Computed example of a mutant assay.
Amino acid sequence: MRRFVKDNALSLFFLLAFLAALVGQSIAGTADYNATQLSDGGEPVSWPAYVTSSDFAVDVAENWQSEYLQFLLFIMVTVWLVQRGSPESKKPGEEGAQSDQEQKVGPHARPSSPAWAKTRGLRQSVFSNSLGLVMGLVFLLSWLAQSVAGTAAYNNRQLAQLQDPVSWGAYVASADFWSRTLQNWQSEFLAVLSMVVLSVYLRQRGSPESKPVGAPHATTGEEN
């Protein structure tokens, strides 16, 4: 067990942090929702009722879809785009998907390489793009969940105000949906931009996300 925890400490830390933040969000969200309910003359709800509501689902889903969009775009654009001096980038001149030899696939695979990296055709193609495919799938599913839950939450507010509900298509085209979506996207893009640019000039000793402290600013793609 100690070996397992040590070997997986990074993922375990972020899993626990994620769960703690999700629980905290649900508790704070219940309190905020009930405060709004009371101010509007409605009835407060229990914690289980809130966490199974469309209001909680849309808040969670819209954060998930923006996070996975961030990673999807970063994974894909770093294949072709570079930032000189950033450890988050390939070196200038190395743009592109690279050769089979550089990627160690097919006849260039090592004995310890994943089984699908040693194959040819569809399986190798799928495995070669599996990270982007999974990130893209999770993004699309969480975006769909956001849109469906958002439609339900929006219609609940409409009915409470004695107004007509809207269809899923109408909500996806609405200002409410895109306001919620874009406020998440812009923060994710700013975070990636900050990481790419600041890592050119700033260091964090011992972190694999940083260049060695003594590395020149122009050094690209080098990590601790």
Rank of each mutant, 00 (worst) to 15 (best):
D32C: 00
Y33H: 10
Y33V: 03
Y33K: 10
N34M: 08
N34A: 03
A35S: 11
T36Q: 09
T36E: 07
T36S: 09
Q37V: 15
L38W: 03
L38E: 12
L38A: 12
L38R: 13
S39M: 11
S39Q: 11
S39T: 07
S39H: 12
S39I: 03
D40Q: 15
D40R: 15
D40S: 15
G41L: 05
G42V: 08
E43K: 09
E43W: 05
P44C: 10
V45W: 04
W47H: 09
P48H: 05
P48N: 03
P48Y: 01
A49E: 14
Y50D: 08
Y50G: 12
Y50R: 07
V51S: 05
V51K: 08
V51H: 06
V51G: 07
S53E: 04
S54Q: 10
S54D: 08
D55E: 14
F56H: 11
V58K: 08
D59C: 08
V60G: 03
A61H: 00
E62W: 02
W64Y: 09
W64G: 05
W64A: 11
Q65D: 06
Q65K: 07
Q65M: 13
S66E: 01
S66K: 04
E67M: 15
Y68G: 04
Y68K: 06
Y68D: 02
Q70S: 13
F71D: 03
F71C: 03
F71N: 01
L73N: 08
F74A: 13
I75F: 14
I75R: 15
M76D: 06
T78K: 12
T78M: 14
V79G: 00
V79Y: 04
V79T: 07
V79N: 00
W80T: 15
W80Q: 13
V82P: 00
Q83N: 13
G85D: 02
G85I: 07
G85S: 07
G85R: 01
G85K: 02
S86E: 02
S86H: 04
P87G: 12
P87E: 11
E88P: 02
E88C: 01
E88R: 06
E88H: 09
E88F: 10
S89M: 06
K91S: 12
K91G: 07
P92L: 04
P92M: 07
G93R: 09
E94L: 11
E95S: 00
E95A: 02
E95R: 00
E95C: 03
G96P: 06
G96F: 11
Q98S: 08
Q98V: 02
S99R: 05
S99H: 05
S99P: 05
Q101H: 03
Q101S: 08
E102H: 09
E102T: 09
E102P: 04
E102K: 13
Q103T: 00
Q103W: 00
Q103D: 00
K104L: 12
K104A: 12
V105T: 03
G106L: 00
P107C: 04
P107L: 14
P107T: 14
R110S: 13
P111Q: 02
P111L: 07
P111A: 08
S112Q: 11
S112L: 06
S113F: 08
A115R: 13
A117P: 04
A117S: 12
A117Y: 10
K118F: 15
K118L: 15
K118C: 11
K118M: 15
K118N: 09
K118Q: 15
T119Q: 14
T119V: 11
G121M: 15
L122N: 13
